Amino acid sequence: MKTAEQHAFAEAVDDFCRAHAGTREQRDALSEHGQHPHNPGLYAACARLGWLGAGLPEAYGGAGGGMTETAIFAERIAYGLAPLGGFVTSMVAVGPYLRFGTEQQRKSVVTGAANGAVEAISISEPGAGSDAAAIRCRAEAVDGGYVINGQKTWCSNAHLADHILLVARTSTHGDRHAGLTMFCVPAGVAGLTVRGIPTMGGREVNDLFLTNCFLPADAVVGAVDRAWPQLMAGLNSERLILAATMLGRARRAFDDTVAYVRERTQFGQPIGSFQALRHRLADLATELACADLLVYDVAARVDADPETQLPREASMAKLKATETAKKVAIEGMQMMGGYGYTTEFDMESHLRATIVSTVYGGTSEIQRDIIGRSYGL
């Protein structure tokens, strides 16, 4: 159950989104007709209100809240269709710094994120997606630091980020999950090239090319060769933030569908009065309620014990929220007919946003595998 303060926070974010991104014209102006899912000016306004750091420690510019506050903000900006795409990657990226980074790294990265800087995280490579142990991007130890060579891909918001939390291979000995290390890569460092990948979602993801990119020894985040357990320690937050975001988008797609079927008439009556559609919407509403309960239950568990790892529950939240969001958008488009396919309505953007959510941050297949293995299967 959310507290009165958390409900008030959610309502304040809702009001902000309605005021600044409540119309299609406002959203088009902020995002260049959907091509840029992140608006720096709007993001800065949220930073001034203290919302970006709602779930971050006060010592680093945050408000001292927890995962529930972070989830609330992620859900509400997604529902409000506010182009603040840098929030998700920033909150995912700051987790390892909080858990394993040096005090200087925390002051720089975490405080920066609370104050409006965008952060990114880069794990995937052309040959290493779900199988992160296949990472080949190499960091070679040299006098005073490391030289990194290789390619990373699907790095969300690297073109906006102040830093990229990059995972590279520092050793090939032992278990295939061993020998990986996290590095804090500053934007614009010599030897780093960021190249956008065209997608249906506009300017979101990037290829990274690292050519003799030198990083000092203090760029290591945590322990050398220990990135894998460090990544595993952060899966609660990553999956919950993604789940909360898609919960918000699913709720918006549902509400847009309900509004349409109430107004659209065929055969002399609103199409929402037909049993076929009414029952579909009843099922979707039930699925949304289940997703909501799951997301915020897991968030509350994390807040109660931030050190606990909940691989089963976090994977369930990510799986349920993203698959539900995709289903709501597909059903919404079907119920809206041809209008759902036009860019005049938001349903086609709901579909584009939700379909990819079952891929990034660990595919639905990977989430199911984690859940199944948690039962010893």
Rank of each mutant, 00 (worst) to 15 (best):
V109P: 05
I371Y: 02
D346C: 02
C290A: 13
K320Q: 10
E365A: 15
M316F: 04
E11Q: 13
V224W: 08
L284E: 11
D369I: 09
V142N: 06
G201K: 11
A29G: 07
A128R: 06
A304Q: 11
V298N: 04
G201L: 15
K326A: 12
Q275N: 09
Y260T: 01
S364R: 05
L49S: 09
A139V: 05
V258G: 04
Q105H: 10
Y296D: 03
G41M: 00
C46K: 00
T70Q: 08
D283C: 08
R352H: 09
G196P: 05
E69I: 11
Q266C: 10
F267Q: 09
R195N: 13
E11W: 00
G61C: 08
R312I: 15
T354M: 09
T286N: 04
M1N: 04
L310V: 01
L351Y: 08
Y146N: 05
G86D: 07
V189I: 15
H163P: 00
A168M: 05
C155Y: 01
A4N: 07
R136G: 11
A19M: 07
G64H: 10
T193A: 15
M333H: 01
D225Q: 05
A10V: 06
A321N: 02
E5S: 13
Q269H: 02
E323H: 02
T89S: 14
A19E: 15
A4P: 00
T363D: 13
L42D: 12
V356M: 11
L281R: 01
S124M: 08
G174R: 05
Q151P: 00
Y375Q: 04
S237K: 08
I241D: 03
L310Y: 13
F274I: 02
T68M: 11
A74S: 13
G150R: 10
V261F: 05
P37S: 07
R252V: 03
E204V: 14
R301S: 12
G66P: 06
L377C: 04
N157H: 14
Y360M: 11
A187V: 01
L30H: 07
G145Y: 06
A117C: 12
S130T: 13
L284R: 00
N157M: 14
A93C: 12
A353M: 11
H159N: 09
T211V: 12
V94Y: 07
R169C: 07
V298L: 11
I121D: 02
I135K: 07
E323C: 02
S108P: 02
M182W: 14
S122T: 07
